[in-house]
């Protein structure tokens, strides 16, 4: 049985249909036309579906859509645009830390939340913070360096 739920995503209201087992990930991708949030494993392991709910990073694949009705959801589409990327995105652009890009939206969400909490994050803090997100292309070093650059830029 599906019911109507209204989600507030990136500051906009989205009326959606969701069943008891429908995840936020499915609704974002299939109904809100926000495919930037990726499905990598549907088990909460890879982190490609990370989004912010109430400003905190969560797995969209482990979050039920009907459990988000009164919460503010922010997806990759909401943290920056190609013309106005946020600090993490800009640092990733500048440092060549992106390869296939499939993990990148989740990585950006995790890093953005991390820097929100620890604006002066050092390398070790960043490594801890990004351990939520798998990347199979980069070997992580450049991503960690990019987030560190974003932190330094934001601080100065």
């Amino acid at each position: 049985m599906t019911e109507m739920v209204t989600l507030r995503v990136n500051g906009r209201e989205h009326p959606c249909r969701a069943g008891i087992a429908t995840t936020l990930l499915t609704v974002l991708r299939d109904q809100c036309e926000l495919p930037g949030t990726k499905r990598g494993c549907n088990q909460g392991v890879c982190g490609a579906c990370s989004v912010l709910v109430g400003g905190k990073p969560v797995r969209a694949c482990l979050t039920l859509a009907t459990d988000c009705e009164d919460r503010e959801v922010t997806t990759i589409e909401g943290v920056g645009t190609p013309a106005r990327p946020n600090a993490v995105q800009q640092a990733l652009i500048d440092t060549g830390a992106v390869q296939c890009g499939f993990c990148t939206p989740g990585m950006v969400i995790a890093a953005t939340a991390l820097l929100e909490e620890h604006p002066d994050a050092d390398i070790e803090t960043i490594r801890q913070g990004l351990s939520s997100n798998l990347c199979r292309c980069s070997g992580y070093r450049k991503i960690v360096e990019a987030v560190s650059l974003a932190a330094r830029r934001t601080a100065s």
Binding site: I20, N42, C61, L62, L64, T66, D67
Partner: peptide, 26 residues
């Protein structure tokens, strides 16, 4: 009962549990 979802929703996605209804405790 649905708490954070980290375990329950993963099991639902895998088809291991199919609850009739959920009581969200948030």
């Amino acid at each position: 009962a649905l708490a954070g979802g980290a375990t329950l929703v993963a099991m639902m996605n895998a088809g291991l549990v199919e609850p009739n209804s959920l009581v969200a405790l948030r």
